[in-house]
Design a protein around this nucleic acid. Structure first.
Lengths: 242, 242
DNA sequence: CGAATCTTTGATAAGGATCAACGCGCGTGG
DNA sequence: CCACGCGCGTTGATCCTTATCAAAGATTCG
């Protein structure tokens, strides 16, 4: 799962549209495969701004309100983007794995913060460099647009998950999504804590724990270790979700 | 509120970032003002595909799974985009008012459906025409990119709303957002039913009704009519939300 | 080994859903 | 013009899911 910079196409398609592969949109080049390298297929590529940076578990990559001039791509590990409310509540917007772009926002400032779920490496890009390409008469790299559209689709799915799913359904979706980058029957490693999962799904740690126990009792999953989970019956798990 | 094709800048900025205006992102032209006309400021504009189309209340504009070759801009009225689950649950992703673009999706097929909340008029655009511009060596119109980024920001805010807000907070956010395109103290008209609001906020009609009653008792709002609401104390209403 | 953090489980409480009934507004048709 | 019916909204009573509070394992790491 972590530690390898697998092609973005896999990473993106995998995470939130597990059932059906993302298809090409007309001739616009929205195929997620083009996300592999920012600018591939165009006359110039978007150069990263500097070397690969490493972050240790729970280290902040950027905070809410920070200048959004830089955005990132995950090289290895897992990153969470989240929002903190003043009373301590936290909503995790997304988990990002190798190949995913994050911190890619419309405003001057980051609306969310980003933290390392586990030790991870990322590479930065500058909006300013995009502007430079544009000033030189280049087209906006389609991969950026494609990534924006992908992120939008993912955010919409997340809203649906949060808006009309119960605890069991939420966890079933989460597990099947997360499992998509493993072979069937393999043990998947949840890099994040129960608290992370809870904050992603709008639940509490206790509920996560209880639902996992029930899923195990129902022989839908195995738990060889706390963070290691095997989906014993992916089909039935998916069937839980309407 | 409805019936007038106000500039998009207002419509977009208004709906989901009421507190602070959206700022320009670097030099990329992400200023939402450029959304006013698709392609303004570039050598060619994206021509609409045909005349303005009208829909009556609750009429479907497109359904989930329909070809996503066409997307739309609201000319007047209100449109909802939503997802239906097989057991009848419905999640409304967003309400779109004059100037808003909807049905703007990455896949071959629409992931959501769109329906008229009240009688409304929309105008269509074709992806194919964008491809044509690109084939002629044009850059991807920045407004499209800006709109994708705006939609992304909105979807993320919606997730936060659904994930970690209680019923009162959800309604407070909804009302203040919806009120942003009226003068302070004015009566705002909720074009949508309680069921629509409920499905947008992940609640039930009964809860919506009860919370509105409480807000009225607490002198936060007035209800001159069922669909007409006046925010008596917008500041205190906003303060409910952390 | 021991402390801190994470996870699980249990007991109880609360927020919102569900079920039920009634009221209101409005359009239709007698 | 009024009566009726229907969709929509409100309110009440009760139930259920999930949150909260509490405490006891498990795991990690110094």
């Amino acid at each position: 799962l972590t530690g390898n910079a697998e092609p973005v196409a896999a990473a993106v398609a995998i995470r939130h549209a597990p059932q059906r592969a993302v298809k090409k949109q007309s001739d616009l080049g929205l195929d997620v495969k083009t996300l592999g390298d920012l600018g591939d297929g165009y006359s110039r590529r978007l150069p990263p701004a500097g070397a690969v940076q490493s972050f240790v578990q729970n280290q902040e990559i950027y905070g809410e309100g920070d200048d959004a001039e830089i955005f990132y791509r995950v090289v290895s590990g897992v990153v969470r983007t989240c929002k903190f409310l003043s009373d301590g509540r936290r909503q995790i917007d997304a988990f990002h794995i190798a190949g995913d772009v994050f911190g890619f926002e419309a405003g001057h400032e980051h609306a969310l913060s980003a933290e390392a779920v586990c030790d991870c490496a990322v590479i930065a890009y500058r909006w300013r460099d995009i502007d430079k390409l544009l000033a030189d008469g280049e087209a906006l790299p389609h991969p950026l647009f494609a990534y924006a559209m992908q992120s939008l689709a993912r955010a919409q799915e997340h809203s649906i998950l949060l808006g009309c799913r119960n605890a069991t359904e939420k966890l079933a979706v989460f597990l099947t999504d997360w499992a998509t980058h493993s072979r069937d029957g393999e043990v998947i490693t949840l890099e994040m804590t129960r608290q992370d999962i809870a904050d992603y799904l709008g639940l509490t740690v206790e509920t996560i724990s209880r639902v996992l126990s029930v899923l195990e009792q129902d022989a839908l999953i195995d738990r060889p270790s706390v963070r290691g989970i095997r989906l014993k019956d992916p089909a039935r798990l998916r069937a839980l979700v309407c």
